[in-house]
Design a binder for these strands. Structure first.
Length: 153
DNA sequence: GCCAACGTTGGC
DNA sequence: GCCAACGTTGGC
């Protein structure tokens, strides 16, 4: 069991959007960065828990948690010319991009902003802090516990 | 909207 | 097989 942090632009897909999914789960698709793709395809597993992070918005922050309910499968959007995530170089026999399904677990009592994470000594080695632009990244057990505790109040 | 970090692509 | 150009991401 591994912990992860997934980033999403709330204008595109927010924690609240995931909570509102009629089917109870949402597809984490549209990942078009190779480092993120590799984590998603090779390491993210069924049952793994996820910190849901809102990026590219007024206050970038971890806002809640989710859980992986289906491991990696080819992202259908790459083959659909109508889709904004269509990739003309992707061929069905050799998919280039992957997605997973997640379900909503919790919304924090208060968001934990990036600025606060950067100021918290226990979190100074987070990938989030060390390497800014990575939308799927591993989180250690102690980082998970620290963030969840900060979000409790 | 600028631009920095990272990985991939492709010309030579 | 080098390395410059390019695409994606995302804080500021």
């Amino acid at each position: 069991m591994t912990y992860w942090l997934f980033k999403s632009e709330p204008d595109e897909y927010s924690l609240q959007d995931l909570a509102a999914e009629a089917t109870g789960c949402g597809r984490w698709d549209g990942i078009r960065n190779y480092q993120a793709r590799n984590f998603l395809r090779d390491q993210v597993s069924l049952g793994d828990e996820v910190l849901f992070y809102h990026s590219a918005c007024k206050v970038p922050a971890v806002v809640g948690t989710a859980k992986v309910v289906r491991a990696a499968y080819p992202d259908p959007a790459q083959f659909d010319p109508e889709n904004k995530y269509f990739d003309p170089k992707a061929i069905p026999d050799e998919p280039r991009w992957y997605c997973v399904d997640v379900t909503w677990c919790s919304e924090f009592a208060r968001p934990v902003p990036l600025a606060e994470i950067k100021k918290t000594p226990e979190l100074k080695n987070m990938v989030l802090v060390k390497q800014g632009r990575l939308s799927i990244q591993p989180v250690t057990d102690s980082e998970w516990e620290t963030i969840v505790r900060l979000g409790e109040r």
